[in-house]
């Protein structure tokens, strides 16, 4: 177990290094540098930036150094938490990132808080009695919620809950300070899809387990039904869903781009979207780095959970 974690942590570091090198190389290309120069020298720069001015700018920024030297420098700065400055907002990228990540983390926390108990319970209930009425209701509902794109769900929910019934605000910008009510719509949008997905996975795992021979053994041992489910089935059925929940962390990071932009929630997705629109290169660079770090860490957690839950892997 510990071996696995150490091995995966080393792998993770290597992946991050490779990715950072790639990222640096991409954003270090002439196109992007020129774009950065234009942005920094101001709107007029587009017309007036001459080759000489550009070179002078490069000189001033220390961008004429050899590639690897600059990469090393950049890496050192990143390691010290210096991710550069946002041209658009004129703040340190680190500050910007911290705030937006914190907001997204709040959203993600509530998503998981709703997702895990609801999806696992529904999935287990559906899978316990394959083909029963309850199973059919849950399965059909799950298929429906996963079939609607999130952007459509967002529109529908806004129309019904905010514009129609007026229960919650339509936008989540929270200009007057933090409150929970504006969070409801983005939360529901994310939850509807994710619950549907996780329910389907949990149900599939549960039906497979319920059809297995060791469940037959447990039933024919004369155990009460709750004992068969709680002790014999769940442990085996939850292996896959639990690993999926960790991978969901990574999935959420992509989903929030749509949801946060739509509801104007000041999170990571919104920041990424704005930066991409504006061409705020250092923000993009830092955000990509964070996204990849989340992906790699969630993989690691997911593998660790799988190993922990599965004695056949744990004790070779």
């Amino acid at each position: 177990m510990r071996n696995l974690v150490v091995r995966r942590a080393i792998q993770m570091l290597l992946i991050m290094l490779t990715v950072s090198l790639l990222l640096f190389a991409i954003f270090d290309s002439d196109q992007f540098r020129e774009k950065a120069a234009v942005a920094e020298l101001g709107g007029f720069g587009i017309a007036t930036l001459s080759a000489d001015d550009y070179h002078e700018w490069l000189q001033k920024k220390g961008l004429n150094e050899p590639f690897l030297a600059r990469y090393a420098q950049w890496l050192k700065a990143v390691a010290h938490g210096d991710l550069g400055r946002s041209v658009e907002k004129d703040v340190a990228v680190a500050t910007l990132l911290k705030e937006s990540l914190a907001n997204t983390a709040i959203l993600a926390f509530f998503v998981l808080l709703g997702l895990i108990p609801i999806a696992l319970t529904l999935g287990v209930l559906a899978g316990m009695n394959e083909g029963s009425r309850l199973d059919r209701v849950i399965s059909v509902a799950a298929v429906i919620t996963t079939s609607i794109p999130q952007i459509a769900t967002a529109v529908l929910l806004t129309v019904i809950l905010a514009l129609g019934l007026g229960w919650v605000p339509a936008k989540s910008a929270m200009t007057d300070g933090w409150s929970f009510r504006p969070l409801v719509l983005p939360l529901l949008t994310l939850l509807l899809y994710d619950i549907g997905y996780l329910v389907r996975m949990t149900r599939a795992a549960m039906t497979e387990v319920m059809a297995s021979q060791y469940i037959r053994t447990a039933v024919l041992k004369g155990l009460p039904p709750w004992r068969v489910i709680m002790k014999h089935a769940l442990r085996n059925a939850l292996v896959v869903p639990v690993t999926l929940i960790f991978l969901e962390l990574n999935g959420l990071l992509s989903q929030v781009v749509v949801v946060e932009v739509f509801f104007q929630y000041a999170g990571f997705g919104r920041m990424l979207f704005d930066a991409a629109n504006f061409g705020d290169i250092q923000v993009l660079q830092a955000a990509t780095l964070v996204a990849i770090a989340v992906a790699v860490v969630s993989q690691l957690l997911s593998d660790a959970a799988y190993t922990f839950l599965n004695p056949r892997v744990r004790f070779k």
Partner: peptide, 10 residues
């Protein structure tokens, strides 16, 4: 099949 008849995680 004894292997399949025993619960793998208990």
């Amino acid at each position: 099949e004894p292997m399949a008849s025993l619960n793998p995680s208990m």
